[in-house]
Amino acid sequence: MSKTTPATLALTQSGVPFALATYDYDPDADRVGLQAAEAMGVSPSIVLKTLMAEVDGKPVCVVVPSDEEVNMKKLAAAFGGKSAHMMKPADAERQTGYRVGGISPFGQKRIVPTAIEEMALLEDEVFMNGGQRGLQVRLKPEDAQKALGARTADLIR
């Protein structure tokens, strides 16, 4: 497994301190974020999953705890839109340059507006995908927010 990905390069270039964590990715897992948390022995609430969605037809990136679900009405409202839906996996891969299960909010092929669940900012540290299946970056949530230029909002059910 390569420890250098577009995500880790973007974090390094932005000067954000982070540490790498690896785990054995299970391609058959129902929920990748929950499987990552279990494999690393940490709470699912600090393992944030990266989801790609569309608000009023425009792509957005959404980062929420792996044990939560995105509320589509709240997501649309966070971006000043009327409706939101999840992006199809193939579209998310084309948009980000990453494979599903390894989509990171950092270093995406095309930069899109990003929102992070506000509750995640209450944590001391969080894990986010490092741009490859089985690779996570551990960092402070406020550093992630700054590096992404992300807005925070109540995004979960």
Results as ranks from 00 to 15, higher is better:
residue 116 I to G: 00
residue 15 G to I: 13
residue 131 G to D: 04
residue 157 R to K: 14
residue 111 I to A: 15
residue 10 A to S: 10
residue 17 P to K: 04
residue 81 G to A: 00
residue 156 I to Y: 04
residue 134 G to T: 12
residue 8 T to K: 08
residue 140 K to V: 11
residue 13 Q to V: 13
residue 49 K to L: 06
residue 142 E to F: 13
residue 108 Q to N: 07
residue 44 P to M: 08
residue 103 I to S: 00
residue 99 R to V: 15
residue 33 G to D: 02
residue 21 A to C: 09
residue 83 S to K: 14
residue 92 A to V: 05
residue 149 G to K: 05
residue 37 A to P: 02
residue 93 E to V: 02
residue 130 G to W: 12
residue 17 P to G: 00
residue 4 T to N: 10
residue 101 G to L: 01
residue 112 V to T: 13
residue 47 V to Y: 03
residue 72 M to T: 12
residue 2 S to P: 14
residue 54 E to Q: 15
residue 136 Q to F: 09
residue 24 D to G: 11
residue 98 Y to C: 10
residue 86 M to I: 12
residue 117 E to L: 09
residue 66 S to A: 06
residue 126 V to E: 07
residue 35 Q to M: 09
residue 114 T to Y: 02
residue 80 G to M: 10
residue 135 L to H: 00
residue 111 I to C: 15
residue 81 G to N: 05
residue 132 Q to K: 11
residue 24 D to W: 11
residue 105 P to Q: 03
residue 137 V to I: 10
residue 116 I to W: 05
residue 117 E to Q: 12
residue 142 E to T: 13
residue 5 T to A: 02
residue 126 V to L: 08
residue 139 L to M: 04
residue 93 E to I: 05
residue 130 G to M: 12
residue 104 S to T: 01
residue 83 S to V: 13
residue 36 A to C: 09
residue 15 G to F: 06
residue 85 H to M: 14
residue 12 T to R: 07
residue 16 V to R: 03
residue 119 M to W: 13
residue 157 R to M: 13
residue 44 P to Q: 11
residue 157 R to A: 13
residue 82 K to G: 13
residue 11 L to H: 00
residue 30 D to P: 13
residue 63 V to C: 08
residue 49 K to P: 06
residue 94 R to S: 12
residue 154 D to V: 14
